[in-house]
Simulated scan of single mutants.
Amino acid sequence: MIIQATDLKKTFTTKSRKGVQTVEAVKGVDLAVKKGEIFGVLGPNGAGKTTTIRMLATLIVPDSGQAVVAGHDLLKDPAGVRRNLGYVSQAGGVEEGNSPRAQIVFAAKIYGVADPARAAEDVLRRFDLLELADRPGRTLSGGQKRRVAIALGLVHAPPLLFLDEPTTGLDPQNRANLWDRIRELREMGTSVLLSTHYLDEADALCDRLAIVDHGVVVAEGTPSDLKREVSGDVVTLRLDELDRAAEALGPLARATRVDEDVLRVYLDDGEHTLPALLKRLEEERLELRSVALDRSTLDDVFLAKTGRSLRDTGAAA
């Protein structure tokens, strides 16, 4: 394992007119990340994702718990941890007044790279940034800045890279481009710990992931295994008398859930079970307004584990 974390906890104390308040940002997180994989931490804003990553990156000290990161003890050897990882924050850290080349060379010197200029040239080439290398940072697009930020985190060739919400604010084309870059890192042997609140991003990129909510891990596994655990298919029904419909269809389903104005019915084989569901509704004289059959998604997993939709928390599809 390149990351083995056990029972990490962090509480923040704030002062306001109402007095001293404490917030349990992380309540006891366990993570096991394998070498060479993209591991995702998925959850809504405020779930504790960034705090967890900042603890593992030695930027903040855990209140309790322990971890070994890239072969170094998080608490006993934080310098060793820092030498072996790259960290890209949500803000990215690209300076407006300096060129990407100057910033990357400076980062290489800080990390003690033997030939900073060559290392910068290599990483600029890898991320197709050579044509932009000497332009001021303020002239770069959002997608270009994210690529520069990742280049900054990789100039010293660390075995592990932390990406905190790497595609937030990017348009679809730049998101897709950055996804390809992250996949290339895995192919080159770099382990990636990625935090995101995007369902499609976690599904598309992650070999395995942990779903985090209110500072705890509520589910962990591969995206396909997590979705299979919930159900193979989900039928979404819009109709009156949702509770009566759920009771009527319960014997035909793995599970049913009333979610605001719809009824979700989880099935092992939706294609072949759907006709029986419709027949049962007709027998019960329950008038159907609409029906949709889909494969289970990570949002269905989040809903099953927490009782609410990840989309409803403000997270994007």
Score class of each variant (00 low, 15 high):
292 A>N: 03
293 L>E: 08
256 T>P: 05
181 R>D: 14
198 Y>D: 07
203 D>F: 11
314 G>P: 04
91 A>K: 14
290 S>T: 11
17 R>M: 13
125 R>E: 15
134 D>H: 09
16 S>F: 02
12 F>L: 11
52 T>M: 08
68 V>M: 11
83 R>T: 00
23 V>G: 06
32 A>L: 10
16 S>I: 06
23 V>K: 07
235 V>N: 02
186 R>V: 05
291 V>G: 03
108 A>P: 09
21 Q>H: 15
280 R>A: 13
77 D>Y: 01
75 L>Y: 08
139 T>K: 10
238 R>I: 08
83 R>E: 05
170 L>G: 03
137 G>A: 10
16 S>C: 04
232 G>H: 09
239 L>I: 12
45 N>F: 07
145 K>L: 02
226 L>T: 01
73 D>K: 06
114 A>L: 07
259 D>V: 15
200 D>K: 06
213 D>I: 08
274 L>M: 12
221 G>Y: 07
68 V>P: 00
226 L>P: 06
112 G>A: 03
134 D>G: 03
155 V>R: 04
305 K>E: 13
292 A>F: 00
75 L>V: 12
252 L>N: 05
45 N>H: 12
165 E>D: 08
27 K>Y: 14
175 R>D: 05
304 A>K: 00
314 G>V: 11
159 P>S: 08
216 V>H: 04
203 D>I: 02
6 T>G: 13
303 L>P: 09
280 R>L: 12
301 V>Q: 00
89 S>R: 05
301 V>W: 00
37 E>I: 01
101 R>G: 04
249 L>E: 06
292 A>L: 00
206 C>F: 02
283 E>V: 09
120 A>G: 03
257 R>G: 07
79 A>Y: 11
271 E>K: 12
212 V>A: 06
133 A>H: 09
